[in-house]
Design a protein around this nucleic acid. Sequence first.
DNA 1: GCCAACGTTGGC
DNA 2: GCCAACGTTGGC
Length: 157
Amino acid sequence: MSRSRQYWLMKSEPLVFSIEDLARAPKRTTCWDGVRNYQARNFMRAMKPGDQVLFYHSNANPPAIVGIAEVAGAAYPDPTQFERSHKHFDPASDPAAPRWDMVDIRYVRTFATPISLDSLRTEKALVGMALLQKGSRLSVQPVTNGEWEYILKLATV
DNA sequence: GCCAACGTTGGC
DNA sequence: GCCAACGTTGGC
């Protein structure tokens, strides 16, 4: 059963991995490893190829949505959870039933002007956006169709 | 560097 | 099941 394209937002620290890094990556694609939060993992498991992703730079100056990527494939186990020396090693994860998944993300485009967190906060249409909720730390979030369309309009203003 | 908010862990 | 302690996120 197919479904229409869904929309997401994913955060990355540009000093660790920026949208420029994604644009330069082989096949303009990267695997989104290292997520160790159940809610974020569950959102990745819900992703389908072709779903669209707002690429957000956190811990940046300014923090901002900087462009678009797309989901390149369904979620699959993140191998770093089993690598003992890896920062994201999880000794409690059972290889027979891996706890953590990741998806592949492909570059689509970079906005001519990043849409800063500050400017997003001034938009009444976006007050319900997960990103803007107090204390929101989730690194993978759903974006509604309305939010997506509104943000893309902002991107081309 | 600070710190508020949040998620996870583990003792009980 | 409660909750204190701890670790992390991420804006500022």
